[in-house]
Each structure stands twice: as C-alpha cells, then as structure tokens.
Design a protein around this nucleic acid. Structure first.
Length: 272
DNA sequence: GGGCATGTTAGCAC
DNA sequence: TGTGCTAACATGCC
C-alpha cells in the first residue's frame, strides 16, 4: 500500500491523533503476535519481553519505514514497521482490535490497542538495537536528500529512471505511483537511461519528486482501493492508473508498459 | 477463473 | 560489481 506520503500521514496520525487516540505517550502492557512471520529478527517471546512495559517516546519515518521509539527507564529502543503492500496501523479500542487480518496487536494503557492489520502478510516489524541495523542499507530519504547529491547519484547509475526511482538503495520512499507522477511532471520517459539525463532535466526530476511527495502528504496520501482510507491524492493523478485516458497536457492517450515488474504509466508525447 | 495490486528480496544470467 | 529478469511471499478484489 503505502509510499512515503502515506507512511508520513500514518506517522503524523500516530503522533497527533487526528480523530483517533494518539499512540505517542502510551504504555505498552502486552503484545499479541498473531502471525509470527511478521516479526523479523528475533523470536516472538523475546520480542514480547522486550516491548512489554515500554512507553512510546516518539513516532517518525525513514523512507517507507515507520519508526516507533520505545523507552523503558533510561533505555530507548527503536521498533520499525514496514507496511509493504497491504499493511495498516490503527489505534483503537482493544475490544475492537482482533479483526480478521490483525497480525500484531500491542495492548496499551487506557483500554486501547495499536493494531497492525495486513491482509497480504507481507508487512514486517523489527526491533533492532539500532535503527541502522534495519535501514542502514537503504539510500537517503527522498525528502532529505539535497539536489547536488541527487544529481551525483543519478550520474553514477546505469539503469532506467523508473527502476531507479523505485530502488530504495537509490533514494528511499518513492514507490510506483509517485515514481510515475514524478516522471510525468519532469517530462522524462520512464525508460530513459539515468546517465543520459542532462543536468537541467535531472534538476527537474529532483524538483518533481519533491513536489509530488509534498502534494501527497498535503492530501494525506492516496486512496483508491480497499487498502488505505482517508487520502485524497488519487484525485491529482495525472498518469497513474489512467491508461488510455487523455493526457492532461496534450490530450493523447496515456500508455501503460511494465518496467521493473511494475505497471508504468506515461505520455509518449510529453515524456522523452 | 484470470489478472491485477501503493513492496521487497533471493537467485540467476549477462 | 551492477543491472535486469523471474519467482516468491499471500490474499483480496474486479
């Protein structure tokens, strides 16, 4: 499901509440692991023992990973959650938490629970000693990287632009939707080889990625199927999911091809 | 029933 | 070593 804007929206919701109870400041009283494969890197009993009794000291995001800082006494330990294709996180009444696709449920003080719901079971929960044990191998966050570093990294790569934007080692946070939308706004063809992109076009791509991600966050992410509710950015799609519909700039039909195993939407006239 | 899905990774070929 | 392709993970929707 989620790309950077959706994960950022979830992080803000867990911090601030926004209609639901906030996670920030809550105490974890117990954990139920209903699908053990989603807990990665340590045994379930060790995970439960390490989390029980901790307070949620902070909630953040790096790339598509949610970062929940847990604190017990003076000891802090990060818990990372990746939603993959169909994961979602909600704070709700503990009595309502054990639904069909609940995979991990953290029982909180006040009769509340944090529910990790994940129909497809691809999601992951990590409890490393240090954040970098999990996210150390990915590239800089797409909203943290600067223009110069983006240009440099682009020059150093051989692949095609669409594949590169999806590659979390290149930059972290962009997924299939925002990659297509970024390339359209930059006027660049998804199959363009990265090293053939002139500097002004590379800067246009950098600007487009940031603009699309910020617009996505502003709209609370994109919602267009049963997986992720509450967002509005789907109303601003210019190419994604618009196969055979008219290009908003030139009127020619949007094309769909497959790149890096992912459906890819673009305008053959506007994107070169 | 077939094809599709906002993600990632291991294995393999070049 | 880098890049790209396939399969796998597992389920639900149209």
């Amino acid at each position: 499901m989620p790309e950077l804007p959706e994960v950022e929206t979830i992080a803000r919701t867990l911090r601030e509440g926004r209609g639901a109870p906030a996670l920030l400041g809550r105490r974890i009283e117990d954990v139920r692991v209903l699908w053990p494969r989603e807990v990665h890197g340590l045994a379930v009993d060790a995970f439960v023992a390490a989390v029980n009794g901790a307070y949620v000291a902070q909630v953040g995001r790096v790339g598509k990973y949610l970062i929940v800082e847990l604190q017990r006494g003076a000891v802090r330990r990060p818990m990372l959650i990746h939603l993959r294709m169909s994961g979602r996180l909600d704070v709700l009444s503990a009595a309502d938490a054990f639904t069909k696709h609940a995979r991990v449920v953290w029982l909180l003080d006040g009769g509340l629970a944090l529910r990790f719901d994940d129909a497809r079971k691809f999601g992951r929960v990590y409890l490393p000693e240090h954040i970098d044990d999990v996210v150390g191998h990915i590239g800089p966050d797409a909203l943290q990287i600067g223009a110069d570093e983006f240009l440099q990294r682009l020059r150093d790569r051989r692949g095609v632009l669409k594949s590169l934007l999806l590659d979390q080692h290149f930059i972290a946070g962009v997924g299939n939707i925002y990659a297509d939308e970024s390339l359209f706004r930059a006027g660049l063809h998804p199959l363009r080889a990265a090293h053939t992109v002139a500097e002004n076009d590379a800067r246009a791509l950098f600007d487009a990625v940031r603009a699309v991600l910020f617009e996505g966050i502003e709209a609370n992410g994109a919602s267009f199927d049963w997986v992720y509710p509450g967002g509005n950015f789907q109303n601003n799609f210019r190419v994604y999911g618009r196969t055979d519909q008219s290009c908003v700039q030139c009127g020619r039909p949007i094309q769909r091809i497959v790149v890096a195993q992912r459906s890819t939407h673009f305008c053959a006239v506007c994107q070169r």
